[in-house]
């Protein structure tokens, strides 16, 4: 995380925190298993998008999923819920 507020003068009078992508950093580092999408199977149902706890799946123009690996924590809900098994989980390399 970027170091902020080196000086007291930059701080607000009380803890007022700004909406920021990655408040906990790039949470993709937490991941053990990586979801991979087989777009030939995907039916564009968007279930994976709505069920992602991390908002790490975006919808492409055709409503197929775009996984943001910077933030995906690898929980596997998307793969578990995909009705056509278009998403599969693969162990991250060391």
């Amino acid at each position: 995380m970027v170091a902020v507020h080196k000086s007291r003068k930059d701080m607000p009078l009380t803890p007022l925190s700004s909406p920021t992508l990655g408040s906990m950093g790039k949470t993709g580092y937490w991941r053990t298993f990586r979801p991979e999408v087989d777009y030939s199977k995907c039916t564009r149902c968007t279930l994976c998008w709505i069920y992602c706890p991390d908002a790490a799946i975006e919808r492409r123009e055709d409503d197929s999923p775009k996984i943001d690996y910077d933030y995906c924590k690898g929980c596997g809900i998307c793969a578990n819920e995909c009705p056509v098994k278009a998403i599969t989980m693969h162990r991250e390399e060391e």
Binding site: T14, P15, L16, S17, S18, P19
Partner: peptide
């Protein structure tokens, strides 16, 4: 002007 006030410090 959304802020979260008084989260973890």
């Amino acid at each position: 002007r959304p802020y979260s006030h008084a989260n973890l410090v």
